[in-house]
Nucleic acid binder design. Structure first.
Lengths: 214, 214
DNA sequence: TCTGCAATTATACAGTCGTATAATTGAAGG
DNA sequence: CCTTCAATTATACGACTGTATAATTGCAGA
């Protein structure tokens, strides 16, 4: 006669549940690192019970793989999206790309945090490393192609060095901006990035917001 | 009559044991991330039994704190050491400092790995965050002072921006070089770093090893 | 309205974690 | 040589981990 009060639940579409689980995992990783993303905690945050995770992901690592792939994809997509709505002028395109890379939503403390947390997993796990390298090289190659389109006279063997330097600069600003969100004034990172990359490449990338003459 | 075959051991000086435990912890963190640095594994690698850890460190986090402080200190010390044996010429000093920062032993896959692993702990743990910020700002301040000493005419309000940009560039090269040790030719990162920072600051930092004229 | 299946919950299990504490033993000092 | 104390080992404990599997139940289709 004792009523077994089981937790009531609603059936959801597969994609909905997977999304919720991935979002919960990324949330936890960003807050407390990989160690905080336990099966039980992920399930609790997604509003389900732990057993359900294994119904949608064969193993916990599978879930983490999916989560990492998602956030890396989101980063590159967000950065490249600005190119869709930018005129074909090469300088303007590079300027827009650089600025977008050190600005919300690409520059995001959560993204930086998650990226750092996954660095180690990516060294052992083949699938994770593939996602990592694809994101990394994809970004650098895109940047290099933007640099190659610039109207400037420069030795072709300098292209690789320029791309590495600009990529390193953007990476550094991205990481520092994500780790110390209050350490920089609004728009400061964009200004610094554009000025520095302009100097490296020998072109004028300074934003046109302020009128100033040398 | 049964002989309890206890593991034989040697008594060591306190500093020796602490060093061994810290080194073992850093070793494990660099290989498998924070999660791999368990009490039992650290003890095994240091050649002792797990219980001994709590004899030298009140808690496991204490050990990790000590380990992080040690590796961060080693990084800044290694980078700043080159200034001891460098002539007072400001350009030469900056050149030596930049080059040393993206070269062994400062640029080290293990150091990069450990740095990334500790990023999350540093967000919660006050002591760790203090060590982190001290290392970070200490490095940037030192870099900024080197830049300020340069013989060049530049607005003083540009100094902060220059320091942030150069620091970001060095950080980016350091991280990429540590994550992809085989992705760059020997000396390539030094060359790229010096050329790019020279361009940002408007001074000639190119290494004198190769004779070339524009 | 009822049946059937899959989505979901519930429970169990073997490891491993960090920590606490008792038992041993190396080695220095007298 | 013997005593003594701390360095070290050994053992235990409760909590938490990921995973496996059985028991329920929401809900679409007949």
């Amino acid at each position: 006669m004792t009523v077994p009060d089981r937790r009531p639940y609603r059936r959801e579409a597969e994609e909905t549940r997977r999304d919720a689980l991935i979002a919960a995992a990324l949330d936890l990783v960003s807050e407390g690192g990989i160690e905080a993303a336990t099966v039980r905690e992920i399930a609790a945050r997604a509003g389900v019970t732990p057993g359900l995770i294994r119904h949608y992901f064969q193993t916990k690592e599978d879930l983490l793989r999916a989560a990492y792939a998602r956030i890396m994809e989101r980063l590159t997509v967000d950065a490249a999206r600005v190119l869709d709505s930018t005129p074909p002028d090469p300088v303007a395109r590079l300027r827009a790309f650089v600025a977008a890379s050190v600005r919300h939503p690409v520059l995001d403390p959560v993204a930086v945090s998650v990226w750092a947390s996954f660095l180690h997993l990516a060294r052992r796990d083949d699938a994770l490393r593939a996602a990592h390298e694809a994101g990394y090289l994809g970004y650098r190659d895109l940047l290099q192609s933007l640099i190659a389109d610039l109207p400037r006279k420069s030795a072709p063997e300098r292209l690789r060095a320029d791309a590495i330097a600009c990529n390193a600069l953007i990476d550094g600003l991205w990481i520092e901006g994500g780790l110390l969100p209050e350490g920089f004034a609004p728009g400061e990172l964009e200004r610094i990035g554009l000025t520095a990359i302009g100097a490296i490449l020998g072109v004028d990338l300074a934003p046109v917001t302020e009128k100033e003459t040398t």
